[in-house]
Design a protein around this nucleic acid. Structure first.
Length: 324
DNA sequence: TAGATACCTTATAG
DNA sequence: ACTATAAGGTATC
């Protein structure tokens, strides 16, 4: 095997532009790449500011790495500690969007109370740049699913069909490659409790593994054409396509119109509540400041997703949750 | 071309 | 305990 021991190091977060919060970033339902080492992910109302270890097997990334790398990270205040099978700094900058100037991005948000509150509460939440294939599959699985179960399905696929990497006598399962996933039967996927998504996952994995299409190819197009390109995959409509564009392919203007956001639009930005997906999408994108509209959406979604308890408590109480 | 409906499975609220 | 219900939609008629 290429590597069998962890190296370690630290990224000084004072060197990046704007704040960073690892827990808010990884547990906000945009990325299903990471697993919390203590297995506590999503099992309670997660907020931000925690200091947990997260681990993943990052696949090769164009222009950065040509082999998988096992990475473990933890945030301690302004230090991002890492252990990895190689130098993961550029990979982390890429995956966690440490290259974004988050302060400038906040400045691009419209002056709005809901957004302002969400930004205060989840200060430092960044978008992610997940690898395209696993992002595509995870959002296909997201249909009619809670965040915790999407994460669970993603981890099951890795455990069942992915390549195992052993480091310091610990095992880490990579997310399956397109061919590893395409090789599975639909019933094998149903056994992981994917439900009707099983055939979508299999057929999409086949399309990618045969070279018929690849999610990364969408990036050759401008935004709306890229979204259309992605909808050729089975199980991918406009909403899932927008998720892949926003959380994997660098289209920070994409605003996935899920049920939560649609409700928020109707209640909060009624003027943007148009007839079809295309028109509402254009209106809310414009309303949220254009280029970084998807960034603003992610704050709003995470804030609203708090639902039940967190949503109903007042702001002072919410701050208590954040601080503790 | 719009508009309903079925679709898998499980966690959680009653 | 036990049953409804809803969960970051999409494909199909």
């Amino acid at each position: 095997m290429d590597h069998s021991r962890f190296e370690s190091g630290v990224i000084d977060l004072r060197d990046i532009a704007g704040p960073f919060d690892l827990q808010a970033t990884l547990e906000s339902g945009q990325s299903y790449l990471w697993d919390r080492a203590d297995n506590g992910m999503y099992d309670s109302m997660s907020v931000s500011g925690g200091s947990h270890w997260y681990e993943t097997v990052a696949p090769p990334i164009d222009g950065i790495t040509d082999t998988p790398i096992v990475i473990r990270v933890r945030q301690q205040n302004d230090q991002l500690e890492w252990e990895a099978t190689g130098d993961p700094v550029e990979v982390l900058e890429h995956l966690l969007r440490l290259d974004d100037d988050l302060t400038s991005i906040y400045d691009s948000f419209p002056d709005d109370e809901l957004i302002k509150t969400a930004v205060e509460v989840f200060h430092g939440l960044r978008l992610v740049r997940d690898p395209p294939f696993s992002a595509l599959i995870s959002f296909i699985c997201s249909a009619q699913m809670r965040v915790s179960r999407i994460h669970q399905m993603q981890m099951s696929m890795a455990d069942a069909f992915g390549t195992i990497h052993t480091v310091d006598n610990e095992s880490f399962a990579a997310f399956p490659t397109p061919s590893q996933l395409a090789a599975q039967s639909e019933s094998a996927l149903r056994d992981l409790s994917l439900g009707y998504r099983a055939s979508y996952v299999k057929r999409t994995a086949e399309m990618v593994s045969t070279g018929e299409a690849h999610p990364a190819t969408a990036a050759e197009h401008e935004y709306e054409a890229a979204r259309d390109y992605l909808t050729q995959f089975v199980g991918v409509g406009n909403k899932v396509a927008d998720c892949v564009l926003l959380f994997s392919l660098d289209y920070t203007e994409a605003v996935p119109l899920d049920t939560w956001i649609q409700t928020a639009i109707a209640e909060h930005f009624p003027a943007c509540d148009r007839d079809g997906y295309l028109e509402t999408s254009r209106a809310i994108r414009d309303r949220l400041g254009g280029r970084y509209a998807g960034y603003a959406q992610t704050y709003v979604f995470y804030y609203l997703r708090g639902g039940g308890e967190v949503w109903s408590v007042d702001i002072a109480n919410l701050w208590w949750h954040v601080r503790s």
